[in-house]
Design a protein around this nucleic acid. Sequence first.
DNA 1: GCAAAAGTGTTTTCAATACACCCATGG
DNA 2: CCATGGGTGTATTGAAAACACTTTTGC
Lengths: 223, 223
Amino acid sequence: MSSLKENYNLMIETLIGIFTVDKGKIKILMIRKKTEPYKGYWILPGNLLNDKETLEDNITDVVCDKLGLPTMYIEQCHTFSNLNRHLDNRVLATAFIGLIDNITLILKKQDKDDVELEWFDIDSIPKTGYDHDKIIAKLITYLKKRIIDSNILKILFPSDFTLPELQNVYEHILGIKLDRRNFRKKLINLGYVTDTGDVNEGYMGRPAKLYRFNEEIESRNLF
Amino acid sequence: MSSLKENYNLMIETLIGIFTVDKGKIKILMIRKKTEPYKGYWILPGNLLNDKETLEDNITDVVCDKLGLPTMYIEQCHTFSNLNRHLDNRVLATAFIGLIDNITLILKKQDKDDVELEWFDIDSIPKTGYDHDKIIAKLITYLKKRIIDSNILKILFPSDFTLPELQNVYEHILGIKLDRRNFRKKLINLGYVTDTGDVNEGYMGRPAKLYRFNEEIESRNLF
DNA sequence: GCAAAAGTGTTTTCAATACACCCATGG
DNA sequence: CCATGGGTGTATTGAAAACACTTTTGC
């Protein structure tokens, strides 16, 4: 603990992968960089940490002020400390995931003129600036693991979703096909979801029933 | 990304909770602080990050050079960024877990005269300096979760352990009693462990058979 | 009426649970 | 021989997996 000051030319940024689900597909929000370096490339939203706020406060500010999105559920995932992350300065990055359901997102977002945002399917990430491709890969892996071993999917499916949509997400994450009958049986019989009585009209084929997650269900591995 | 330099009076330290299992009990290694502040208190080993190394390299150096322990399996867990972690400076902390089995530990450790180390049962953590009590709590929670949903326990039980020892660890972590017959049945029938043919002599009661984990087993939730 | 997508039941298999007595050693 | 801790088998229950046809809507 000697030499407290001398070794410090070192900065920290926050980065966030914001995820939502739209029609059974998991999407991540990226922002197009407007200045050099990496001008025109897609990157994760984020900000440099200043010395009067926590990482969590900082990233919450990014979400609200910079992106115009509502406050959302976040989890810290990993701190990246490779030496060459930035070209000039040493900058560490603490990466978060943020989860928001599509309905709240559409209702509460405020458009910002000064940022160019786009949602990408997590299977179709564009070319990124910096090392954000590696960070995104880690965030997606983290998200998948959390979906499998907790019930954070509730946050992405707040109410009035269809079981085929939910099944799509599970199949996508697990990389396997699930039997429709067994899927419904498990979710319904184990008390995870409840029929809302409504149906999802306006699509091709037979309208699907709408469900919501039950609140009081404890987390366990479903698949 | 304006104002790169002006906001930086900010440092990062690494901290590590090193865990081992001894006779069915999970232990964590702590170090006694020899200087003010918090002189005489127990803290987690760690070090300030300098600008020429990654967090992972830094903590590996702590383990080897400062503590005299062999290189071990580590995982990054969380970065703590509360404003008042240290008294004078703003110091963030990235905390790791390190896992090592008791046999390798005893064989390969080099005693260091200048550090006072002690292994504490994770249920009996002493009074700590700084916010290390909170960090330890988080590390223990993290470790428990990882033990439940992966097979990192293999790292802590390399070979020649008894099933009652292993059962103790599971019971401790899960906070429940497990049936001895069902525990053995599961571990053996599902191919997780193999009888080495040896027994554990020299303790009271009937000697226990010794087992080792099978290598090729995929990770799943056992309980 | 046909294309598209959603809904439904039964059987089999296997792991999970509950449960009580005997065995091997040290002192 | 007794105290201590370890090892063993069976029956029941419940979830997991496999499997094909019918229903509802839009066009």
